[in-house]
């Protein structure tokens, strides 16, 4: 409706009506942000009412079950185990990914020799390895960490390689004019330039580690949120399964939030106050 009024008002009122239009849109936006979750829960509730708890449990029941699991403390070993697997897999995969990414971007020989294997590992569906890893390493943490690391590995290799090989030509020329050694150019130019690219690799790797750890738990685990889902499947306890879903979602959000926090700290340290200009200033220099 506001839009139509604006049209009639014409040019003289354009600025003022733009502002009112903008603020009313903003209000509408805020309203929708607040209302949507309730709407979602309402629809969930209505559908659940039409079926049995075996198919879709009621959101309220799921919530109460969630609370009870936290109160009686039965959730902690699972949550703790899965978090540990995610973080260990992420760290292992990232360190390896960073190392190999640097290696293949520094040496042509390494690129020719190693890159095909990296691509083959990537083409291989890593979840298919999970049963074998269980045979090798048992039902403990090791197979999950390995799967998570394998999945986290590739985005890091790729982003590190991309970041290190896209240094703007003028900056490289400057370092050549300054008679900088190869290692100095890597440390003082190419790595700092690659930081934003490497960090977006971290983000993808972190989310993939979560997927890797949980799916690896499906294959064989005593503990963990994935194991909890498999147990609830066996006992047809859909409610418990939903509890695990909710916890996994919140865990993913927390990890992403943590990533964002670290990224912000690093960027402020690197680029100072002009944090918003990071992308623009890098593009400007690379033109």
């Amino acid at each position: 409706m506001t839009i139509e009024i604006n049209r009639i008002d014409g040019d003289t009122e354009a600025k003022g009506s733009f502002i009112t239009n903008f603020s009313s849109q903003k209000l509408l936006g805020q309203f929708l942000v607040l209302v949507t979750p309730f709407l979602f829960l309402l629809i969930w509730h209505l559908i659940a009412a039409g079926t049995t708890p075996l198919i879709l449990p009621n959101p309220y029941d799921v919530f109460m079950r969630l609370v009870s699991y936290f109160i009686n403390g039965r959730i902690w070993p699972h949550l703790f185990m899965t978090t540990q697997e995610i973080l260990a897999g992420f760290v292992l995969g990232s360190v390896l990914g960073l190392g190999f990414g640097t290696l293949v971007s520094e040496s042509d020989i390494a690129r020719k020799v190693i890159m095909p294997y990296i691509i083959v590992t990537q083409a291989l569906p890593k979840f298919a390895l999970a049963p074998m890893l269980v045979i090798w390493f048992g039902f403990g943490m090791a197979p999950k960490v390995i799967i998570a690391a394998l999945i986290a590995f590739f985005p890091l290799v790729e982003n590190t390689f991309m970041g290190l090989t896209t240094t703007p030509q003028p900056q490289l020329e400057l370092f050549r004019a300054l008679r900088a050694s190869r290692i100095t150019t890597l440390l003082k130019l190419r790595i700092p330039h690659a930081v934003p690219a490497i960090f977006s690799g971290f983000r993808v790797a972190l989310m993939l580690s979560l997927v890797g750890a949980v799916v690896a738990e499906y294959v064989g685990a005593n503990q963990g949120l994935g194991a909890l889902i498999i147990v609830s499947q066996g006992t047809l306890d859909t409610e418990l399964m939903f509890v695990a879903f909710v916890i996994l979602t919140v865990l993913g959000l927390c990890l992403d939030w943590l990533y964002g926090l670290v990224y912000k700290i690093v960027l402020v340290k690197l680029y100072g106050k002009t944090i918003d200009d990071v992308s623009s200033s890098t593009t400007r220099l690379s033109v």
Partner: peptide, 30 residues
């Protein structure tokens, strides 16, 4: 590149993650 030569390029070619001071210090750091 000769050590007795200073080069100024068409673009300023500053490193955006360094302060002005750190950018000017770069030749010594290298």
């Amino acid at each position: 590149p000769h050590p007795q030569i200073g080069y100024v390029f068409q673009q300023a070619v500053l490193l955006p993650w360094r302060t002005v001071e750190e950018n000017v210090l770069l030749p010594f750091e290298v």
